[in-house]
Structures are given as C-alpha cells and as structure tokens.
Design a protein around this nucleic acid. Structure first.
Length: 400
DNA sequence: TAAGCGTGGGG
DNA sequence: TCCCCAAGCTT
C-alpha cells in the first residue's frame, strides 16, 4: 500500500507533505458522503443503494453513460441514457442493433462519431465476453489498457469506467478535474499545454483505497462547488489547500488560450416534393461528419452567387436534377464547434431528371409523418418543425 | 500538436 | 442575443 507517486518531485513542489495529501483525500471523501450526487442511476445498485467500497457495478450501463458524457452535461445525458437502457437493456441488444437504430437514439446528443465508435466497440466487447454472462461485471475487462484499445475510449473515459465499475484505482482528468486542479495550484500555464502535469497531479491525489468515491467526489465538487462562473469556495473541503482561493481569484483559472474566430457560411437548402406528396431526403456518407445521418439536399453559397442559384447548382451537382426555386420556408443561424452556418430553406419544384445519390449514400422519398423514423442533425430538425407548421397551416387554409 | 467534431444549458 | 463551454477522442 502507500502512494504510487511519492517519489515524484512535483509532489514536493505542490504540497508540504504526504500527510497533507492524506488529509486532502479524507476531507474530500467526507465532503462526498454528505454532499455527493448519490442518485446518479448508473452509479447505484439496482435497489437504488450506494455500492459498498469493494462491490462491483454493472459495466454496460456505466460504459454507455461515460461515452454519452464526453463533452456533454449530465443533465443532457440523463434522458438519453434512460431511453437507451430501455431500448438496449444489455450488451447483445446493442451489439446486434442496426446503425440506423443507434443513430435514432443518439440523435440530438451531438458528436455522432461517438455512436459509431461505441457500436464498433460493442461488437469487440461481445467477442471478448464470449459466452460468459454479460451482466456479470467479472465478464468484462477491468484493466485500463483493454478499454483504451476500444474505439471511442480514451484515457479519461477508460479510467472513469473501471474506477466506477470495479473500484480500480485510475485517475481522471476531465473538464471538472482540470478546473479544480488548475485552481488548486494556481496554474499559470494555458490549460491545453498543462495536461501532462495535471495528469500527474490527479494521479498523486487519487485515493487508492476508494478510487470510485474519490473520482466521483472530484467531479461532484467540480460541478456543484468549484464551478466555472461563481465557485462556492466557502463550502469547499480543499479551500485551505487552494492557491487560487488564497489569492482570491479562482475564476481566473484555468487559463485558456486565445479563441479562434469561426468561419461563416451561407447554406442553401431545397425541399422537393413528388406527386405523392413525399419529400426528398439524403443520407450522409459515413466518411463525412455526421455520417449516416439524414438531411435535406443543399450546399454552400459561393462568392457572388444568389442563394437561389446556389440551390439550383447544388441540386444539379449532388442529385443530377434541374429544379425551379419557389417560396422560402425559413432561414436561421446554426453554429457548430468550428463554423457558423446561415441556412436558407426554399421549396423547390423538380423540372427534369431523376434524383441520384451523387454525393450521398442513398436518397429516399418519405411522407412528412415518416420523417420521425430517420435520424436528423439539429439544424435539419429546425427545418422539419417549420415544415410541419407550414403543412398544418396550409391544411387549415384548404379547409377554409 | 492542434484542429475537427454537435448540441443545449447557463450567464 | 450572444458567448462560453461541458464527464474528450481521433487523426
């Protein structure tokens, strides 16, 4: 027993003694007992009780949750996780599911490559587990390297999974922990260039006897006390050790690099109906971003081009058809992580040609009530709700 | 190493 | 309304 990193000089730079580190661990764990979020559904047993220290938890629900939680807030994940567990209660259900079903469940969560990678990982895990009972935690890998080897699982997610499920000592460095540690040592480095040091620090602090509780305590502290905007230092079990607290400037940490400004584009979209009243949708190629998701056809406006011409040109290039641009349905802004788009959506009339999937996986003509059966990214969801409103109104006016 | 990748919550 | 950014991973 003892500390794995006790010989690390960095420990002596940051802390006075190993006794201090012990004290930090116990004060955090005591805080957690009283103030932790002990209700998170994948971190309690099926009877709702908190697991004992050495008790193992079902791995599949934890793995699903941890992937959903990548760059995504707990509050957003909860309803998705619940629906997921109702749809695919055990690993084989998920591993045998169609990509289409998986994307439908993921729709709205963002970062859709997570869903694809998790689906690939599900098949590998099913292989690893073989004929053993997938509900038994002992059937699953409990070492960090096996998890990191799976698609979509990095060091942080792997550590989170094995410490949660098996109480295996593995330190975390997610957004919460980075913020806490950067404040603790008053790091003057830009956060993105400080991760090696923060990983060491997280490793040094980890309680090797209760890693599950310690890790969860850190994340709960980050999300309820050591918050980004207005940290509640009064209630923090680590305030006496925290340099930023003593300096009185916790919100100045962590230090971020210069923000880059996002490129702007205008996107023209064409809504095309056939004689049956069906609308044309296209499935994105799997090597594109948002691969496998469906969308309405269209594309980027070029320099000096009217938006109507953009739509005519894009539908010619991507579908091999000629269209006449009719009335506008709506326009709106939609920002991604790395670009800002302004969508302009027009009704179009097919003049000649048969649509072909020249730039997509496949095309489909669907009734408007069938759109719910296809996964769409958020920007297209906005178009769908505007279209439904429009169709309802035009139906009403016909009735008059 | 730094850029690419979605979305919705919150100030 | 606008901006920041979250339980990050991959290339």
């Amino acid at each position: 027993m003892g500390f794995r990193v006790s010989q690390d000089n960095y420990a002596l730079e940051v802390f006075e003694s190993m006794n201090q580190i012990e004290d930090m661990r116990s004060s955090l764990l005591n805080w957690f007992k009283l103030n932790g979020r002990h209700w998170i559904p994948w971190k309690v047993k099926s009877d709702g009780n908190v697991p004992k220290i050495q008790e193992k938890l079902p791995v599949y629900p934890i793995w699903v949750a941890e992937v959903m939680l990548q760059q995504t807030q707990l509050k957003v994940v909860l309803p998705y996780w619940e629906k997921w567990m109702r749809t695919f209660p055990i690993l084989p259900d998920f591993a045998h599911a169609l990509d289409h079903e998986v994307l439908l469940l993921w729709q709205g969560l963002g970062y859709y490559s997570r869903a694809h990678r998790m689906h690939q990982a599900s098949k590998k895990l099913l292989d690893i587990i073989g004929h053993a009972d997938s509900l038994d935690p002992d059937s699953w890998p409990s070492d960090i390297d096996s998890w990191i080897a799976l698609p979509g699982i990095g060091r942080n997610t792997a550590a989170s999974i094995i410490s949660s499920a098996f109480n295996v000592p593995a330190s975390l460095l997610d957004g919460n922990v980075k913020r806490i540690l950067a404040r603790l040592i008053g790091s003057k480095k830009i956060l993105s260039k400080d991760s090696a040091r923060l990983w060491k620090l997280s490793d040094l602090l980890l309680d090797n006897h209760e890693p599950r509780n310690f890790n969860q305590a850190l994340m709960d502290l980050g999300s309820t006390v050591c918050t980004i905007k207005s940290p509640k230092c009064c209630c923090c079990p680590w305030k006496k050790y925290c340099l930023a607290y003593h300096q009185g400037n916790p919100t100045e940490f962590p230090i971020k690099g210069p923000k880059k400004l996002l490129p702007d584009f205008v996107i023209g979209i064409g809504l095309i109906f056939n004689d049956l009243g069906e609308i044309l949708i296209a499935q994105r190629k799997s090597n594109q971003s948002m691969g496998g998701m469906w969308e309405f056809p269209g594309g980027k406006q070029e320099e000096g081009e009217s938006i109507e011409y953009t739509i005519i040109r894009e539908l010619q290039e991507e579908l091999g058809i000629k269209v006449r641009v009719g009335n506008i349905l709506l326009e709106f802004d939609h920002s991604y992580t790395h670009k800002k788009l302004h969508f302009v959506v027009y009704f179009c009339e097919l003049i000649s040609g048969v649509p072909k999937p020249l730039a997509s996986l496949q095309l489909k003509w669907v009734k408007s009530h069938e759109l719910v059966n296809y996964p769409f990214p958020a920007a297209n969801k906005k178009m769908i709700s505007a279209l439904k409103k429009y169709l309802l109104l035009s139906k009403d006016s016909e009735a008059l």
